[in-house]
């Protein structure tokens, strides 16, 4: 009896230790960060709009120049609970004290300067594919933005999602800097589009269905998905049934720029905000995104029929 109890304790300790080791935060290799040149704020502004930072981190409902004040406060109401986007302006309440290395570890490894895991509502599983130089430039740009002293509310999550340490296991499954799809014979535009879509643009976070553990199902990349915010769907943007095969590359680029689809409907929901970001992105980059979307494998809708 005593032996059995001892065995149980040992097993629990081993399991607990194993969990603790496997869920530990990991940071970027220092030499990868050391290779970056000093950040260029002008280039960083381009990265800022490609990355869509303002969509979550500007105050709710902000428009025009107010989208440059990254006060936080936008609420994402999901099945896991409500996430509240934090203040990332250059202030003591924001990330004013963060170094470039801190920003890179947050965006590419989902690790805060104090070592805690960020929740993947912050799309670092996409940003992990970014070039370190882009992060350096973004860091320089973020410092030029107006500070805000707003303190965003804490997240309101359901158990067990309140336990951050477990995110370490999720990262082991889903955090990778590898491309989401392999495209044979991709030209320069397609490659650039792949970088923008899979990395900073983090399009897959909404347009790709998730598996049972909340990771993106890359076998149905961009096939559309139930809306992460509960109501409605995010459309299929592959060439498969239900998707956008009938759209030309020019149609896609124009929709990103103007918000109008080829049948002159206007893009709504969270995509309305993406259009605001994309209107700041260069025409060449919008065309690259379009070229990439025309090149990815076709899939039928990644969500069940709703009617």
């Amino acid at each position: 009896m005593r032996k059995l109890a001892m065995l149980l304790i040992v097993l629990l300790l081993v399991a607990g230790g194993g969990f603790w080791l496997l869920s530990a935060p990991t940071r970027l290799e220092p030499q990868l960060l050391a290779a970056a040149q000093p950040g260029d704020a002008t280039r960083g502004e381009a990265v800022f709009w490609q990355g869509g930072c303002a969509s979550c981190h500007a105050a709710p409902g902000a428009s025009g120049d107010a989208r440059r004040v990254l006060a936080g406060g936008v609420q994402l109401v999901t099945d896991f609970g409500t996430f509240v986007a934090p203040n990332i302006s250059p202030s003591p309440q924001g990330i004013g004290g963060w170094s470039f290395e801190d920003l890179a570890n947050a965006m590419m490894k989902g690790v805060a300067p104090d070592g805690r895991h960020f929740y993947p509502a912050f799309p670092y599983a996409s940003y992990a594919r970014m070039q370190v130089q882009d992060i350096a430039d973004l860091h320089a740009f973020l410092q030029t933005l107006p500070p805000s002293d707003h303190v965003a509310e804490p997240h309101r999550l359901k158990f067990p999602y309140t336990l951050r340490r477990g995110i370490g296991l999720w990262k082991r499954l889903y955090l990778s800097s590898q491309p989401a799809v392999t495209l044979a014979g991709a030209d320069e535009a397609v490659k650039r589009g792949q970088y923008l879509v899979e990395g900073p643009g983090h399009c897959g976070e909404c347009h790709t269905p998730r598996d049972g553990f909340g990771g993106l199902d890359t076998s149905r990349w961009m096939a559309g998905a139930p809306s992460p915010e509960g109501k409605g769907v995010i459309p299929n943007i592959t060439g498969g049934e239900g998707g956008i095969d009938s759209w030309s590359a020019q149609d896609i680029a124009y929709a990103l720029e103007s918000g109008f689809t080829p049948d002159f409907d206007s893009l709504g929901g969270s995509m309305a905000d993406v259009v605001q970001n994309m209107s700041h992105v260069s025409a060449a980059d919008r065309e690259a995104i379009a070229a990439y979307l025309k090149a990815i494998p076709a899939h039928p809708n990644g969500y069940p029929a709703t009617r």
Binding site: K231, I234, F260, L267, G268, G269, N301, T306
Partner: peptide, 17 residues
């Protein structure tokens, strides 16, 4: 004019399929 399309559809429309 067209800014209104996006703003209104952002909040008051839900994409279904």
């Amino acid at each position: 004019v067209s800014k209104n399309c996006g703003t209104c559809h952002q909040t008051y429309r839900i994409k279904k399929d």
